[in-house]
Design a protein around this nucleic acid. Structure first.
Length: 201
DNA sequence: AAACGGATTGGCT
DNA sequence: GCCAATCCGTTTC
């Protein structure tokens, strides 16, 4: 069943980043349905987080959607090449977000193969935030859309993990964030082959 | 007005 | 393993 608007309003972004493991990310883009199980996430805790685009309350054309009420997408372009998909959560004007770093494809496998130009047996097909977004057809065209709509949404299909099955590590690629760089805000499913960097702290 | 660098990836060495 | 690709917000001149 589709996750409700209320789900995304939780104030604790760290709780949500962990709880989102096992939730199912669905997209229907150009009449093509593709679905993947979320297996790796990172939490970004709003204006206090030196790694967040919203650090210090920064607002720009790019980041304004982070300040919306939870339950919308935040998609931005990194290195001029890759679209990264985030779920905006918590109350309006609280720019918390969860980055989706990897998914396990379960539906629309042929579509995913075509988008990625590689075989479904290649684990790189949806491992890493740029790859996961591309596999599901996510780009800036769906920036700011409601996740309760019919283009990009999440479902609970009864997949849950115990604490023993969940790994915790520091976030990737944010060395510039000083004392926030090593915080344990990356969550992943232990042993899942799509997890992008399972062995980093 | 211009330079800098990034929540990355994939192809080539 | 190294490195180019290449857009855009922020910083600096």
């Amino acid at each position: 069943m589709k996750l409700s608007k209320e789900y995304y309003l939780h104030q604790d972004v760290v709780f949500l980043a962990k709880d989102l493991l096992g939730k199912v990310l669905c997209t229907q883009i150009n009449q093509e349905l593709t679905v993947g199980i979320i297996v790796e996430t990172e939490a970004y805790f709003g204006v206090e987080d030196k790694a967040s685009h919203a650090f210090g309350g920064r607002r720009s054309q790019r980041t304004k959607v982070m300040y919306a009420e939870g339950g919308v997408s935040y998609v931005y372009l990194i290195y001029g090449l890759h679209s990264l998909f985030n779920i905006v959560v918590s109350a309006k004007d609280v720019p918390n977000a969860v980055l989706i770093r990897a998914v396990e494809p379960i539906e629309g496998l042929d579509v995913i193969e075509r988008r990625r130009n590689m075989k479904i047996t290649n684990k790189a097909i949806s491992s890493g935030p740029g790859s996961a977004a591309k596999a599901l057809g996510i780009n800036r065209d769906v920036n700011g859309v409601q996740l309760t709509g019919d283009a990009v949404w999440l479902e609970d299909r009864g997949i849950y993990f115990t604490d023993e099955q969940i790994g915790v590590a520091s976030r990737v690629g944010i060395a510039y964030a000083q004392e926030h760089a090593l915080l344990p805000l990356r969550f992943f499913v232990k042993g899942n082959k799509y997890v992008s960097k399972p062995n980093l702290p």
